[in-house]
């Protein structure tokens, strides 16, 4: 089943009062997301990710094109009972406490008082702000707001989850927690559609990704297909290696950096790494980490952006935004 389907979604923004030519934020975007997928929606600032999500949430009306969620047109309000949405840098009623806010959301979905109480308590714990449940949202930190935002998106056990930069503003622990929540949701069969800038999170979570630039789809597919996932080198970090061995290590490496007692080495392959490990042991040093270096999404991202910018420097038909307008 296609859980999310966008067909030729286009959005023009009127900028300025007298300007005739609108700014095209989305340009004939077509996308399909299958049931149970974790779908990453990527693109640089201003690519149109938030615009797309807002259109799906009925907050913006598309200039043309159409979209379906769970095989219903997005204008159908009943669809919204089965989805959850976390807005970008969310902000909620600051005079409500976390608990009151979630109860309010629960009641909007039509749950009874007991049901609301149960869901609220569960979710507050699930997103790790159970302690702050009686604190007004005004006093929440950015990360806590982000968490309560995730909680309100989950209050109705949605079938589809739309998250606009769910990791932004979270500390590493928070990011891991959100990652876990997303994975849990997938296990329950929920389809997750999320936009993000944080590429490692995308890499570790997504089944498929779409890359958007200037309102146009640049690429879409399985991460492993989009990226050549081959390992290009290995990065090795060690400290306190005695001098003779450390110089040897530096000679072995493709690239070496020394930061105080610390050695950062880029090694070509496993064989060299084996050798290095022996040297580190001999030099009474300590191994800190070994990480494979792949063509990362980042590399790909930059490449794709460059290509698409080169293909279409002037945004055919619509005016390019000048600074300050």
């Amino acid at each position: 089943m296609k859980v999310i389907e966008l067909r030729d979604l286009t959005k023009d923004f009127q900028i300025g009062f007298f300007r005739k030519k609108p700014f095209r934020a989305l340009d004939h975007l077509c996308l399909e997301v299958e049931e149970g997928e974790i779908f990453g929606f990527l693109g640089p600032n201003g690519a149109g990710k938030t615009t797309t999500l807002k259109i799906l949430m009925r907050l913006l009306y598309p200039t043309s094109g159409s979209a379906w969620i769970l095989e219903r047109p997005i204008s159908d309000v009943s669809v919204h009972a089965r989805i959850g949405y976390l807005p970008e840098s969310p902000y909620f009623y600051d005079y409500l406490t976390g608990e009151e806010f979630l109860s309010y959301c629960g009641r909007i979905f039509g749950f009874g008082p007991r049901e609301v109480r149960r869901r609220t308590a569960d979710l507050l714990d699930a997103v790790g702000i159970g302690d702050a449940r009686l604190l007004p949202l005004r006093k929440y930190s950015k990360g806590m707001l982000q968490r309560i935002g995730v909680a309100q998106a989950l209050i109705n056990d949605p079938r589809v989850l739309f998250l606009d930069e769910p990791m932004s503003g979270l500390d590493p622990l928070g990011r891991r927690e959100v990652r876990e929540i997303i994975l849990q949701q997938r296990q329950r069969g929920v389809t997750v559609f999320f936009s993000s800038h944080i590429l490692p999170d995308v890499e570790s979570l997504c089944d498929r990704v779409a890359i958007l630039n200037r309102g146009r789809l640049v690429d879409c597919g399985k991460l492993t297909d989009i990226l050549r996932m081959e390992i290009t080198s290995l990065e090795l970090v060690a400290t306190n290696v005695a001098p003779p061995q450390s110089t040897q290590l530096e000679r072995l490496a493709l690239q070496a950096n020394r930061l105080g007692e610390r050695l950062h080495l880029r090694m070509a392959d496993d064989g060299v790494v084996e050798q290095s490990l022996r040297l580190i042991r001999e030099g009474k040093g300590k191994l800190i980490s070994i990480n494979p270096v792949r063509e990362s999404l980042e590399d790909y991202f930059l490449k794709a952006m460059d290509q698409s910018d080169a293909r279409d420097p002037g945004q055919g038909g619509t005016e390019k935004r000048e600074a300050g307008s």
Binding site: M57, A81, L86, P87, Y91, D94
Partner: peptide
């Protein structure tokens, strides 16, 4: 304050 975003995404007209 953008509080309307999360509200209108819920099943209300």
């Amino acid at each position: 304050k953008r509080t309307i975003y999360s509200l209108l995404a819920k099943p209300i007209h």
